[in-house]
């Protein structure tokens, strides 16, 4: 927990400096005080764990976001076409996608990636997997989500908490 507190404090200080950009001693001192207050509040709230502080995976996550952005761009055009067509041919489908990820944060990453990709929205998550609502029938193939699931799991390193 001490390790998480230190990492959180460092990242929050970086965040403060990004927001503030004043490097006078007084303002930076205020920043350090704010960071300590925030870390203290998190300690009181009992949320100092690997889910609040997932900053160890930043590099892989950035790479994953780059890949995801391309996927989002590709999927967007199909949805735009469906929305803007006068006859609007859609075929909403429900499907269940299994979640191979071990940690909760990996599952969150996977479910949020599914929601971010236009045309598919994760509606519910339970032991079976993620219930996905797909706008078009050709998007509703569980095999299409396998690669995304693997990459999402890899992006948070899948270290068990």
């Amino acid at each position: 927990m001490v390790r998480y507190a230190i990492i959180l404090a460092l990242v929050m200080l970086l965040y403060w400096l990004t927001l503030s950009f004043y490097f006078e001693p007084l303002i930076v001192g205020f920043g350090i005080a704010s960071v300590l207050f925030a870390v203290g509040l998190c300690y009181r709230m009992r949320i100092l764990d690997s889910e609040t502080v997932p900053y160890m995976h930043t590099m892989t996550t950035i790479g994953y976001f780059g890949w995801l952005f391309l996927e989002v761009v590709k999927a967007n055009f199909a949805v735009v076409k469906a929305v803007l067509r006068p006859d609007m041919e859609i075929s909403p489908t429900l499907l269940t996608v299994p979640t191979p990820q071990k940690t909760d944060i990996g599952k969150t990453m996977f479910a949020n990636s599914i929601t971010l990709t236009p045309g598919t929205v994760s509606m519910d998550i339970d032991d079976d997997g993620i219930l996905v609502h797909a706008l078009l029938a050709e998007m509703a193939d569980p095999d299409d989500f396998v690669e995304m699931g693997q990459r999402a799991g890899f992006s948070v390193s899948e270290v068990s908490s």
């Binding site: 006068p86 006859d87 609007m88 041919e89 859609i90 075929s91 909403p92 489908t93 429900l94 609502h133 029938a137």
Partner: peptide, 8 residues
């Protein structure tokens, strides 16, 4: 949810 093919 309303499922199946739909046309405006």
């Amino acid at each position: 949810p309303q499922l199946g093919p739909y046309k405006a």
